[in-house]
Design a binder for these strands. Structure first.
Lengths: 249, 249
DNA sequence: AAGCATATATGCGCAATGCATCTAACGCAA
DNA sequence: TTGCGTTAGATGCATTGCGCATATATGCTT
């Protein structure tokens, strides 16, 4: 499929690929987690110009023979020590001509969801603390730029249009939450219904009715009771569940 | 905002933008309409190699100082004679290294929705009939490649990965239909509830309950009765409605 | 004038949701 | 050991939205 026919191959030898000036293409990854009742994302302090010192999403240029997916995975491995088992989805492509002062850079943004524990270990492995997580404040319906703050509540200066990219990521995940089972991506392999509910509440920034949430989740067929229960909690321990892929209907 | 500071400007003079080999970036537009109870999209017969003779989405390379949105609008104007008032939304970016045999071309796909009447007049204005509309057959849940057929039901050979792009567009629009008012984008300025229902049925490929559809639409606050009614129909004429943007809550 | 086709309104049963109540199971302190 | 606080999890009920059936309205056609 999609293989050029004979005459096409002839043609390709004479085709001039330099007819147009080309932009650079990069990927940026929004690595979202939920920590202490807030959303957070991984940012890297820029060491080089332009905008040295500002906080940027982990990213990198796309190799000339590298797929966009692979580039995103590579960035995750290199800058966040995150392996391939996490949820990664293409988000949006940002291409305003002036978004980077160096040159025309078109950035294909990806969202990844990981349990905070993974992101924390990845971050602490970085000795120079250039990796940090930030909370995302929550003004109702989002979609535009977002204010990013460090753990002390101070606003972090973000690079380029990366605050817009994070805003778009939050909007996307919030929208998907209602009709796609992705909340569990932000939790350990086994989790309680209460924990899952809190994830939903944080993402939507509004309380969720406990009973109907339980009913919906259990009726969805995506959850499977493990038979295990919580340990060392000061109250009745809750059942631990596991996500299961629903077989094709 | 996002303006480089003094030291950055200095740095930019010495920055070498040619450190990486760069891909070409293009936009392709899926121009969807509903005609005779089927979805259809605009395809252009390729005159040049590679894949001359195959049917492709209207598209073009992104200018080095042109935003992605502008490029999509330019393609719509040039190849479909469609003006700016239509719904256009970025869809997905396709970047497999081998998707185009010429060279690495990353394509940012857009979806546009227009009433079929507009697409028809645009197509007929093209004298060489290189512009055509096709129906999209419907195998349940979509997302992957799609078979495209001409008005006689013959399968049309599509170029590159454009059948995948159309599949993605259909999936996106189908998904958005439930929680976003976009169906009216495929209808004239005033329309009956029945026409809107048919649009929904075609996009979802399943019948919609008439009464609850009416109730939902009227309760949504997006529709406004014009006071006018259909003319020259063989039965009781239906009220004509108009879409209204709901004021911000 | 009669008939036909579709629009529009109304009433009812079912299923999902929100809410309140009740019981179960753990740690903790006296 | 016993009582208490806390959260899990189950049950019952009112409300809401939806599917479905029915009845009426209003145009055109013959």
């Amino acid at each position: 499929m999609r293989r050029p026919d004979e005459t096409d191959s002839e043609f390709l030898r004479t085709y001039d690929p330099d007819a147009y000036e080309r932009p650079s293409v990069a990927v940026d990854v929004v690595l979202l987690s939920v920590r202490d009742g807030r959303m957070c994302t991984l940012l890297v302090r820029r060491k080089e110009r332009p905008q040295a010192g500002r906080w940027a999403l982990p990213g990198g240029f796309v190799g000339i023979q590298e797929s966009l997916e692979s580039a995103a995975q590579r960035v995750l491995r290199a800058k966040a020590a995150i392996e391939d088992n996490v949820f990664v989805e293409q988000l949006y492509t940002f291409g305003e001509p002036e978004r980077d002062p160096r040159m025309r850079i078109i950035s294909v943004a990806y969202v990844a969801l990981v349990p905070f524990e993974l992101q924390a270990t990845a971050g602490s492995a970085e000795p120079d603390r250039s990796v940090s997580t930030v909370g995302i404040p929550w003004h109702g319906a989002t979609g535009g730029a977002v204010e990013l703050r460090d753990s002390d509540g101070r606003i972090m200066k973000t690079a380029f249009d990366h605050a817009d990219i994070v805003g778009m990521a939050v909007k996307r995940i919030r929208g998907k939450l209602d009709y796609t089972p992705i909340g569990f991506q932000l939790l350990p392999e086994t989790f309680t219904l209460r924990q899952l509910q809190r994830v939903h509440e944080v993402i939507q920034d509004q309380p969720v009715n406990k009973d109907s949430f339980r009913r919906r989740m259990l009726a969805s067929g995506h959850l499977e009771a493990t038979g295990e229960r919580q340990r060392d909690v000061e109250h009745r321990p809750a059942e631990l569940y596991r996500f299961i892929k629903r077989s094709a209907v």
